[in-house]
């Protein structure tokens, strides 16, 4: 990217990101999106692209690609174990960006990098934004970066027209929800339940009120995640949210079938099943 492109006025002309276009399309077609999370590098960095392509075949609309971290305080056991395996397999921010570059030769799938703060801090915000944009990523979400501390990161990302997605939860008050939305682009990620990532039996009763509250604070698309793993959950959120995020359910498949050559197809088939749940209900 040239120096001229990295200053503010030019950035405003860079146009909609792949993520924004994906939500515009979903909205035009009156569909709900599936955002599929996988931990990069599990079972090995070499297989990450193949797994993303499987999710694309299964109908996932956006990929969240997780950078594994040694101390994932927001994650439940399934993603903790996935992170351990990915780190043992040599996954780093660099290998994640390499996977994205490889993916871009074969797919225009919208892709969000999902990470804890420290690996990105160590890589450097400016360098990360530069390299992520060059690799073909469309944005990032940093789980443990709260809006109070986010300014230098957001500035670096915006210069390269990368989306910054922030999280909001049931404990987030309306005023803070509006602040989170105003710092976010692409979409706002709503955390459906208390606790950490990982499949739950039933949808938390706090999920729908949170979506309704967030609607009043922002016009950005709303995705809901944490605890969602099956078709019934998709059916339950489809009338309300613009997209559902599923992570641990996919990583459980990777954990069980990591050695399997057909792993990509297994992910595709789970994605298809979840998509059916999202398609079955008309929006409210």
């Amino acid at each position: 990217m040239s120096a001229a492109a990295s200053i503010e006025p030019a950035a405003a002309n860079l146009g909609a990101t792949r993520i924004e276009r994906a939500f515009a399309r979903l909205q035009a077609e009156r569909r709900r999106g599936l955002i599929a999370y996988i931990t990069a590098g599990d079972p090995s960095p070499a297989r990450t692209v193949e797994l993303i392509l499987g999710l694309e075949r299964g109908g996932a609309d956006i990929i969240e690609l997780g950078v594994p971290f040694s101390d994932p305080i927001a994650d439940g056991p399934v993603i903790q174990r996935a992170s351990d395996r990915a780190l043992k397999a040599g996954t780093t921010v660099k290998t994640v960006l390499r996977s994205i570059r490889d993916l871009r030769r074969r797919s225009a799938m919208p892709l969000l990098v999902f990470s804890y703060l420290n690996p990105i801090l160590r890589y450097g915000f400016e360098r990360f934004a530069e390299d992520a944009a060059a690799a073909g990523a469309d944005g990032a979400l940093l789980t443990d970066l709260n809006i109070e501390e986010a300014e230098p990161y957001v500035a670096a990302m915006r210069k390269r027209n990368l989306d910054c997605v922030f999280l909001a939860s049931q404990t987030t008050g309306d005023k803070r929800l509006a602040e989170i939305a105003s710092l976010s682009s692409g979409f706002v990620y709503l955390v459906s339940t208390a606790g950490v990532t990982g499949a739950r039996e039933t949808l938390s009763s706090s999920a729908l009120p949170l979506i309704q509250r967030a609607r009043r604070q922002t016009n950005l698309p709303l995705a809901i995640g944490f605890g969602l793993s099956k078709r019934e959950h998709m059916q339950a959120v489809a009338p309300y949210a613009d997209a559902a995020v599923v992570g641990s359910a996919f990583m459980r498949v990777v954990e069980r079938h990591g050695e399997d050559a057909g792993l990509g197809e297994r992910l595709a088939s789970l994605a298809r099943d979840l998509k059916q749940g999202l398609a079955a209900v008309s929006r409210k």
């Binding site: 305080i73 927001a74 789980t143 709260n146 999280l167 939860s169 404990t171 987030t172 955390v191 208390a194």
Partner: peptide, 20 residues
């Protein structure tokens, strides 16, 4: 007021813990 000691400290937590 944000819990910072110069460049250090602050709060870096899952959003659900901010209000608690």
């Amino acid at each position: 007021s944000l819990g910072r000691f110069g460049a250090y400290g602050g709060r870096y937590v899952p959003e659900i813990l901010v209000e608690p």
